[in-house]
């Protein structure tokens, strides 16, 4: 084993990832957990760069550290700030599963090809073919784009549809205007800014809504009142 700078860098990044993962498990403040997940994404992006997977690193930095942190914060604002403590006896089952899965992975390490092995299954058959064929079939320098958009066009179409479905699901459940301000978040069980009801954010867009939606909103409002009293 030789201690090249890259090796030390990889090792350091992996160690930092491990530390951050333990911190995420141990901390109960959800705000800190969301921030640490951003740190985790950024560290893994740096690690991907050192593995020469620039496209993956780019995606990880943009999605993991950028967008998902903001979305998690937005989701956290609607719920509690603190995670509920879990008693030890409830943790034993998941712990057992994790230990067994971890041992199985350690057992499987022996069968893994060496890093950068040209004869490993990932590099040998279809991967080598794509790298070789991109130059004479597609004429673009970035093999990743060629594989994603052309050779694996079906898969990317599926991914696009998945993202579309995710957005569609959120829109169907929440609506783009969040029920026009009628719904109130209750972090840690108490209303924020109790007293004056917040005015509807978009009164113009609010009025022509179908009747079914407004009755539903009224029902939720009644339910909240029932819980409070």
């Amino acid at each position: 084993m030789h201690f090249s700078p890259i090796f030390i860098l990889d090792f350091g990044l992996m160690a930092m990832l491990l530390v951050v993962a333990f911190a995420v498990v141990r901390i109960r403040s959800l705000f800190a957990i969301v921030m640490l997940q951003g740190v985790y994404s950024l560290l893994s992006a740096a690690w991907f760069v050192s593995l020469d997977a620039v496209d993956v690193a780019f995606t990880e930095a943009a999605v993991g550290a950028g967008i998902s942190t903001v979305l998690m914060l937005g989701a956290m604002l609607l719920t509690d700030r603190q995670a509920k403590p879990i008693p030890v006896h409830q943790k034993m089952g998941p712990f057992l599963v994790v230990v067994v899965a971890g041992l199985a992975m350690f057992y499987a390490i022996g069968d893994m090809p060496a890093y950068g092995d040209a004869l490993s299954p990932a590099n040998a058959y279809i991967g080598a073919e794509y790298i070789e064929a991109t130059k004479r079939e597609i004429f673009i320098p970035n093999v990743v784009t060629a594989v994603l958009a052309s050779y694996r066009g079906y898969d990317t179409f599926g991914e696009t549809v998945v993202i579309f479905m995710a957005g569609l699901g959120v829109l169907l459940l929440l609506g783009l205007n969040g029920n026009a301000g009628k719904w109130r978040a209750k972090p840690n069980g108490h209303n924020i800014g109790e007293g004056a009801p917040t005015p509807a954010r978009n009164p113009v867009e609010n009025e022509p809504k179908p009747v079914a939606k407004s009755t539903k909103a009224k029902r939720t409002a009644k339910k909240t009142v029932g819980v409070k009293s």
């Binding site: 967008i67 903001v70 979305l71 937005g74 989701a75 604002l77 609607l78 696009t160 993202i163 579309f164 995710a166 957005g167 959120v170 829109l171 459940l173 929440l174 609506g175 783009l176 205007n177 969040g178 029920n179 026009a180 301000g181 719904w183 109130r184 978040a185 924020i192 800014g193 917040t198 954010r201």
Partner: peptide, 21 residues
């Protein structure tokens, strides 16, 4: 699709949050 889906998720979450002081 990606731009609009991400913005849709953000708008949906962000609009439900009351103005936090």
């Amino acid at each position: 699709t990606v731009t609009c889906a991400m913005l849709a998720i953000f708008y949906a979450f962000g609009s439900r949050t009351p103005e936090l002081s």
